[in-house]
């Protein structure tokens, strides 16, 4: 996959439903929190397709972060099977799981999780240094509009800028899937829109299968598909006939 302005026409890509990127079968997850057992997922069956932009919508505690972590190989389900393309990642051992995260997944966390002792560029380099086919960190930061902030430390950046660094870090490896956990959760509307535009562009221009978690229903209008969750189950799936661009969203 190459990243170029003229290789693929913008805005014409639609999901290829013949290619399943993720498939889960009856996935459950139980956490032990001290003496309490928390049932985070109660049987989730789901498919995500090539080039698809999905929004996972639901209140806090609905299990969406758990699902995203499982898709991204950060966590293992208690029962059930998860497939990434033709591989069953639930059967992976630890090393294979690490390999999978390293080679295929781009993560964006709600709280950015930047390394405070590294500059924006170095935070991105942290990922590009171990990736198979990365862009230059400067280019990734250019994509999120931070070309002039490359040498700033996280503490010198605003919340929106930090989140954009986190996105640059996630996309710099040119991942096959981009998983974003509440990427705008800690941001104001204007900054949130800027961040969503970046994610949207990655999906459109690179064709990266993208899943975004949010509890903000307004954001769902920019997705191909909206999957709603409640109490650890999928409660609703909706396909948008027409997608809105981020600046058209109304919060």
């Amino acid at each position: 996959m190459s990243l170029s302005s003229d290789s693929v026409p913008a805005l014409v890509q639609s999901p290829d439903t013949s290619v399943t990127v993720f498939a889960t079968e009856d996935v459950t997850k139980v956490y032990e929190m001290g003496e309490v057992e928390v049932q985070a997922l109660r049987g989730v069956d789901l498919e995500l397709f090539e080039r698809e932009f999905v929004v996972l919508l639901g209140p806090s505690g609905s299990g969406k972060s758990t699902l995203l972590n499982i898709l991204g190989g950060l966590d293992m389900p208690t029962t059930g099977i998860v497939r990434y393309r033709d591989q069953e990642i639930t059967a992976f051992d630890d090393a294979a799981m690490t390999r999978y995260r390293r080679d295929h997944v781009g993560f964006v966390f709600q709280f950015y999780n930047l390394i405070p002792s590294l500059t924006a560029k170095e935070n991105v380099a942290l990922v590009t240094e171990v990736a198979l086919n990365p862009m230059e960190p400067e280019d990734a930061l250019g994509l999120v509009g931070l070309a002039d902030r490359v040498d700033h430390f996280p503490a010198q950046l605003s919340g929106g800028e930090q989140q954009r660094v986190a996105i640059a870090r996630a996309i710099a490896k040119q991942p096959d899937v981009l998983l974003c956990d509440e990427p705008t959760g800690a941001l104001d509307v204007h900054t949130g829109v800027v961040v969503l535009e970046v994610i949207d562009r990655i999906n459109r221009e690179l064709g990266t299968t993208t899943a975004v978690i949010t509890h903000n229903a307004a954001i769902s209008d920019m997705a191909h598909r909206v999957i709603s969750m409640k109490d650890g189950r999928i409660s609703d799936v909706r396909t948008n006939d027409e997608r809105l661009s981020p600046e058209q969203l109304e919060w």
Partner: peptide, 13 residues
């Protein structure tokens, strides 16, 4: 959390 992030990016044990 920094450790978690490193692992999420695919850094090995």
């Amino acid at each position: 959390e920094q450790i978690a992030a490193l692992k999420a990016f695919g850094y090995t044990h």
